[in-house]
Simulated assay, not measured.
Amino acid sequence: MERMDGVPPEGEGLKGGTHRRTDGQVGQWRGVFSPGGGLQPLLPPPGPPQPLPYFVRRSRLHNLPVYPRLRKSNRRLTELRHVEGDIWALERELRAFLGGRGGKEPEVQVNEVTGSLRFKGRWEGELREWLLQRGF
Rank of each mutant, 00 (worst) to 15 (best):
E2Y: 00
M4V: 11
M4N: 05
G6Y: 02
P9I: 02
E10P: 14
E10Y: 03
E10I: 05
E10L: 03
E10G: 04
G13L: 04
K15C: 15
G16C: 10
G16D: 07
G17D: 05
T18G: 13
T18Q: 15
T18R: 15
T18V: 15
T18D: 15
H19M: 01
H19V: 01
H19Q: 03
R20Q: 08
R20S: 07
R21A: 15
R21Q: 14
G24Q: 03
Q25A: 11
Q28A: 04
W29R: 12
W29F: 15
G31W: 00
G31L: 01
V32Y: 07
F33I: 01
F33Y: 11
F33Q: 07
S34C: 09
S34L: 11
S34P: 06
P35H: 03
G37C: 06
G38N: 12
Q40V: 13
L42M: 07
L43P: 03
P44Y: 00
P44L: 06
P45T: 02
G47M: 09
P48S: 14
P49R: 00
Q50M: 06
Q50F: 05
Q50V: 14
P51A: 08
L52T: 11
P53D: 09
F55E: 15
F55W: 02
F55Y: 06
R58D: 13
R60F: 14
L61W: 02
H62C: 12
H62F: 05
N63F: 00
N63C: 15
L64N: 05
V66Q: 01
P68G: 07
P68W: 08
R69Y: 01
R71T: 03
K72H: 11
N74V: 09
N74T: 10
R76K: 02
L80Y: 03
R81S: 12
R81V: 01
V83I: 12
L90G: 09
R92A: 15
A96M: 04
A96V: 06
L98Q: 07
G99V: 13
G99M: 07
G103N: 09
P106R: 01
Q109M: 06
V110M: 06
N111Y: 01
E112G: 15
T114L: 01
T114R: 04
L117E: 12
K120T: 13
K120D: 08
W123Y: 13
G125E: 12
G125A: 09
E126M: 12
R128S: 10
L132E: 05
L132F: 00
R134A: 10
R134Y: 08
G135N: 12
G135F: 02
G135K: 03
